[in-house]
Computed example of a mutant assay.
Amino acid sequence: MISIWFRKLLRVVKYLVILALSLVILLAFVPVPVTGVMIERQIQALWNNHKSYELQHDWVPFEQISAAMKQAVVAAEDQKFPDHYGFDTAAIEKALEYNSRGQKVRGASTISQQTAKNVFLWTGRSWFRKGLELVFTGLIELTWGKERILEVYLNSVEFGPGVFGVEAAAQKFFKRPASKLSRHQAALLAAVLPNPLRFKVQSPSPYVYKRQQWILKQMRQLAPIEQRFADN
């Protein structure tokens, strides 16, 4: 009896793996219409009866996103993004050491890991979700490439309640397309990414302004992201 259930479980796992691989390969070529986090937010809004919640999301190709925006998110979120294979081991070691000394948790997720979570999974800190995130991160690193990962990240990341992707954010907060974002606007958008439900683009806190200035400094110091892609 146990062997029968074990074989059934293996069959289910096999089908899930095939489904995951197929989805990853498909999304290497087509725009991502909806993500796991978008679905999660919609469910939360319905559950909490937030009738005013409206999801805004417009996909734009990589070429129609300003160079400043690409530079800003790399400077803010993952400066080693062009150089690693999905995981920043040095940052993970530092985060583990930091977390072992205090109660406040510091993350070490790369842009690749955040993209895997945003597109295929959900928010939260469970070990099960983190394990799935590692699997999907490895898959997209193998099949998508850095430019595609950054393109999907910029089109799927949350910039505020219901605001997903840089085009929707640019239109909502600055009344312009993502291709026309300035360095200061891009840095302000990137500044809220650690917690877009808490930090506001439209009414930035002193912390957000300070983080924007830090990001602008990092943007100047880093080589242009597309040049770094070419060098790798």
Rank of each mutant, 00 (worst) to 15 (best):
Ser3Phe: 09
Ser3Pro: 02
Trp5Thr: 10
Phe6Trp: 08
Arg11Ile: 09
Val13Leu: 12
Lys14Tyr: 12
Val17Trp: 09
Ile18Gly: 06
Ala20Tyr: 10
Leu21Arg: 07
Leu21Trp: 04
Ser22Glu: 05
Ile25Asp: 01
Phe29Met: 01
Phe29Tyr: 10
Val32Glu: 05
Val32Tyr: 11
Pro33Thr: 10
Pro33Gln: 09
Pro33Leu: 08
Val34Arg: 06
Val34Cys: 00
Thr35Gln: 06
Gly36Leu: 06
Met38Gly: 03
Glu40Gln: 14
Arg41Lys: 15
Gln42Ala: 14
Trp47Thr: 14
Trp47His: 03
Lys51Pro: 04
Lys51Asn: 15
Tyr53Ser: 02
Ala67Tyr: 08
Ala68His: 15
Ala72Pro: 01
Val74Trp: 02
Lys80Gly: 06
Lys80Met: 05
Thr89Pro: 00
Thr89Arg: 14
Ala91His: 04
Lys94His: 11
Arg101Phe: 12
Gln103Ser: 11
Arg106Val: 05
Gly107Phe: 08
Ala108Gly: 07
Ala108Ile: 07
Thr110Leu: 11
Ser112Glu: 05
Gln113Leu: 08
Asn118Tyr: 00
Gly124Thr: 07
Gly124Met: 14
Lys130Phe: 03
Gly131Asn: 06
Leu132Thr: 10
Glu133Pro: 01
Glu133Trp: 04
Leu134Tyr: 13
Leu139Lys: 11
Leu142Asn: 01
Leu142Lys: 13
Thr143Lys: 12
Lys146Asn: 05
Glu151Ile: 01
Val152Gln: 02
Leu154Met: 02
Leu154Gly: 01
Leu154Asp: 03
Asn155Gly: 00
Ala169Glu: 00
Ala170Arg: 11
Gln171Ala: 10
Lys172Phe: 04
Lys172Cys: 01
Lys172Met: 11
Arg176Asn: 07
Pro177Tyr: 10
Ser182Gln: 13
Ala186Trp: 07
Val192Cys: 02
Val192Phe: 03
Leu193Cys: 02
Leu193Ile: 03
Leu193Phe: 00
Leu193Arg: 00
Arg198Lys: 10
Pro204Met: 04
Ser205Gln: 08
Ser205Asp: 01
Tyr209Asp: 14
Lys210Ser: 14
Arg211Gly: 05
Gln212Ala: 06
Gln213Trp: 04
Ile215Lys: 01
Met219Gln: 12
Met219Asp: 04
Pro224Ser: 09
Pro224Lys: 07
Gln227Asn: 09
Asp231Cys: 08
